[in-house]
């Protein structure tokens, strides 16, 4: 198996992480890559911001009062 190490691979795994659990090898590849890659580090932060925002949106749909 090819070891994921391009930004394309790593950001792909960071997106996949929202929908499935990564294997140990994948998690390791992500951690090692991010240590030295500022772009993927930023990308990871973005996925976390979006994760939080989607959670808030979901809660908002439940709790928001009658619109207008």
């Amino acid at each position: 198996m090819k070891i994921p190490n391009s930004c394309r691979d790593i950001s792909g795994l960071l997106l996949a992480r929202e929908d499935r659990s990564l294997s140990l090898g994948e998690r390791l590849a992500v951690r090692v890559h991010i240590l030295t890659c500022r772009a993927c580090h930023r990308f990871e932060k973005q996925t976390l911001v979006l994760r939080g925002a989607l959670r808030q949106w979901r809660e908002h749909q439940r709790e928001e009062g009658d619109p207008r």
């Binding site: 930004c7 932060k45 973005q46 939080g52 925002a53 808030q56």
Partner: peptide, 22 residues
């Protein structure tokens, strides 16, 4: 994908820092 990544798999552009939009 072409918009986002170069052929060698790097990002075309540095991802921007995002702050909590909520």
């Amino acid at each position: 994908e072409t918009l986002l990544y170069r052929r060698d798999g790097h990002f075309q552009e540095m991802p921007e820092p995002w702050t909590d939009p909520c």
